[in-house]
Nucleic acid binder design. Structure first.
Lengths: 117, 117
DNA sequence: ACCTATTTGTCCGTATGTATG
DNA sequence: CCATACATACGGACAAATAGG
């Protein structure tokens, strides 16, 4: 079983999906290159709406854990399990960002803009 | 007029809303402390769905530009207009991230993790 | 302390578009 | 050309937090 959700939880369904899937990706029980079930299939098996799964998938894509594209589905990113090793330089970057009184989301937005140039 | 959207554009409606509002916030034509129209009001005036506006509002909140809460509405954040001055430091952060061969999404995910500690 | 109106938050359903293979 | 699968947008319903009376 890939995962389960609790409709009675105080946590939103899409949040449960994100944390559940992300945890398994980081843990390695879902390997890089693995294909996640289609949003429709996972939604049916968990008895939730397709949009709820898609919202979770899109969050995981924004976080870089999966590659999500039309017509192809969701594939666990190659770099997903390497993230733990890359955090060395990041903490310093975060410290600087905090000194600038940025929020995490703001920094991410600014980074995406700056990345293009 | 606060802004306008073009249904025929190749850009999604929520994206037009985000860039339009963010631009005005950065430019200062919408000042810190200003209250944005309720999602329903803006949706009605632009003839788009409430969910489309809410999605845009939630993105602006994630980016730190507005304070968005149930029952209160959307208020432009105090730090919002300082963002234009922060781009200098960000480009340097991005350069370092690129040197580490990070993807934008990967960096965002790492940042959110590191932010907690 | 209570009630009510306001406003966002989540979820469901449906329809249509669009990139992929 | 066609089936697949995500992307966006619309609509409706109810829940939950907030503010004010």
């Amino acid at each position: 079983m890939l995962l389960s959700v609790d409709p009675a939880s105080n946590l939103p369904l899409f949040e449960q999906l994100v944390t559940g899937l992300r945890g398994q990706i980081i843990a390695g029980s879902i390997a890089a290159g693995d294909r996640l079930p289609t949003a429709r299939d996972l939604a049916d098996s968990l008895d939730v709406n397709v949009h709820t799964v898609l919202r979770a998938y899109q969050m995981l894509r924004d976080e870089g854990f999966i590659d999500l594209r039309r017509g192809r589905g969701a594939v666990v990113a190659d770099r997903a399990q390497d993230f733990s090793q890359l955090s060395i330089g990041v903490s310093r970057l975060v410290d600087e960002a905090k000194a600038l009184e940025l929020t995490p989301g703001a920094l991410s937005a600014l980074i995406r803009e700056a990345w293009e140039k």
